[in-house]
Amino acid sequence: MVEWNKRHLLDVEELTKEEIQQVLDTAKSFKEVSSRDVKKVPALRGKTVVMLFFEPSTRTRTSFELAAKRLSADTINIAVSSSSMSKGETILDTARNVEAMNVDAIVVRHGSSGVPQILANNLKSSIINAGDGCRSHPTQALLDMFTIKEKLGKLEGIKVGIVGDIMHSRVARSNVVGLTKMGVEVTVCGPSTLIPFGIEKLGAKVCYSVEEVIKRSDVLMLLRIQKERQKENYFPSIREYAMEFGVNAERLKKGKKELLIMHPGPMNRGIEISSDVADGPQSLILEQVTNGVAVRMAVLYLALGAKE
């Protein structure tokens, strides 16, 4: 294995195919740790990892926290509401304050694209992006790749369909970039108003028929549809969205029997995904959660051990 030389994880775009492979391989051995009776290794003993969340996200934060703890790192959670920002403190003020406490890594979630990059430009700690704006959610994309590879044995040549609000989804963007890099054929699907300009240039195909996508895919990734998008007139109604783009057991019959279903959560049951699909035999949704911890362990381990 080559020596890891990236202190930060800001975006999947900056990772080479080999580096993605290395994260997935490392995660595989950490997944084994999580299945032991004593789920802990001393890899990051004495290191401090801070979860700096400007946007609430119980799932991602808990997953990172568990990952850090299983590596024996000390962890701290800092939830910053956007209101303290409006009181005149800049993001850099907040981050500099955190860093002044001699921390080793900052796991950051922020509603505005580029914030992890801004922190990385100005701080000495490792910055791990736990989701920024509509831009990037690299650990989600990595855990999705891990899950697909674990199930299907490979990524090259696999066909993945991503259905939902592609425009406002950092998960979709990171997966389009990451999966295509690994040789996956990605098709995005959703209302035309929620497909961003130039997504084809990122390597994705576009299709407006969810049934077409079901027919041609090995894996179907469903995204949460935010109800406020309807208020902004991106589509006429949640009802029509569910009818045109929602996936239920009936619709799944159009696809391969072994078609796999993924969802980054949290789900809107009955809208983008019906309960019989979410809880059905083809669903990998809970495995994604399990694998998330292993992948985040791998990311923290590699970044904090990086040689520059």
């Binding site: 775009e13 694209s113 580029g114 920024d132 704006g133 509509c134 831009r135 990037s136 950092r170 963007r173 961003p196 300009f197 130039g198 997504i199 240039k201 990122l202």
Partner: peptide, 13 residues
């Protein structure tokens, strides 16, 4: 600007 770069960087166009 809305276009390829706003999509690539996930920024509001």
């Amino acid at each position: 600007n809305e276009g390829y770069f706003s999509t690539l960087l996930g920024m509001k166009g």
